[in-house]
């Protein structure tokens, strides 16, 4: 790293150390011109705290591994530039809310993944390899609805941002319901009715309070609130049709 990369100013970083019981530990590193939250955590691990645990993989906003709570809000660390989030020259970095804390910034993602199953998420096709691929018109209403909700990277930022998830352990949460909405708009999915029933079951879309925190925080700008509203509308209009 060349000396011109640094601005000679020290950034105060407070990081959660421990599991459910733990504390915020203070560190100081040099502020750089281009620096993401993931850069900050990595630099602290490399130079100051080798035992610091955090999770990442792609570093470019594709894999959804590095989500953490930065100054009180859930964010993807790799695409969050510190200049956009730093307050009083300080960053407070904690693990995601609403998930069991394993160590430092690492959460157990299992409860989040399980909500997808609870919402009837496994895709169930009917065609075999001998059948022709299903013809799905790109401009059909169902395809457009699925498209708008499809690019979820499973980062759990929405799950962490959701207050209903926080107080209602039965609630499926925004990502699972968003996934269910893509499936009931998928003509190839053979269990659309079942997915719909599960997404509307106990802890399903009826439990959403429409706060919109999921949509506000989604790093890839999906709108789970709209997917949930779509599920609710389908209670009146029936499953979407081609």
């Amino acid at each position: 790293m060349s000396p011109t990369d640094t601005a000679n100013e020290l950034l105060k970083v407070r990081i959660w150390r421990g599991r459910e019981q733990g504390r915020l530990v203070d560190y100081e590193i040099e502020t750089r011109k281009n620096q993401t939250v993931l850069d900050v955590v990595t630099e602290i691990q490399h130079r100051l705290e080798p035992t610091l645990a955090y999770r990442f993989a792609c570093r470019v906003g594709v894999c959804g591994s590095c989500a953490m709570t930065v100054n009180g809000r859930p964010r993807w660390a790799c695409r969050t530039h510190i200049k956009n989030v730093v307050t009083d020259n300080t960053l407070t970095i904690e693990p995601l809310r609403n998930l069991p804390k394993l160590k430092d910034l690492v959460c157990d993602m299992a409860p989040f993944i399980e909500t997808w199953q609870k919402a009837g998420a496994p895709f169930s096709g009917t065609a075999t390899r001998h059948d022709k691929p299903a013809a799905v018109k790109p401009d059909s209403a169902m395809r457009l609805a699925a498209d708008a909700a499809l690019q979820c990277i499973n980062c759990a930022v929405c799950y962490s941002a959701c207050d209903v998830v926080n107080w209602n352990p039965d609630y499926i949460g925004p990502a699972g319901l968003n996934r269910a909405w893509t499936l009931i708009n998928d003509v190839r999915h053979s269990k659309r009715e079942l997915t719909f029933e599960l997404a509307f079951g106990t802890g399903g879309c009826g439990s959403c309070h429409s706060h919109g925190n999921c949509t506000r925080h989604c790093p890839v700008e999906l709108r789970p609130s709209e997917s949930i509203a779509g599920l609710k509308r389908a209670a009146f209009s029936g499953l979407p049709e081609e």
């Binding site: 509307f200 079951g201 106990t202 609710k232 209670a235």
Partner: peptide
């Protein structure tokens, strides 16, 4: 049942 109750409440 949740869906029926949801509909009943909205209607």
């Amino acid at each position: 049942m949740e869906k029926s109750l949801f509909l009943a409440q909205r209607i």
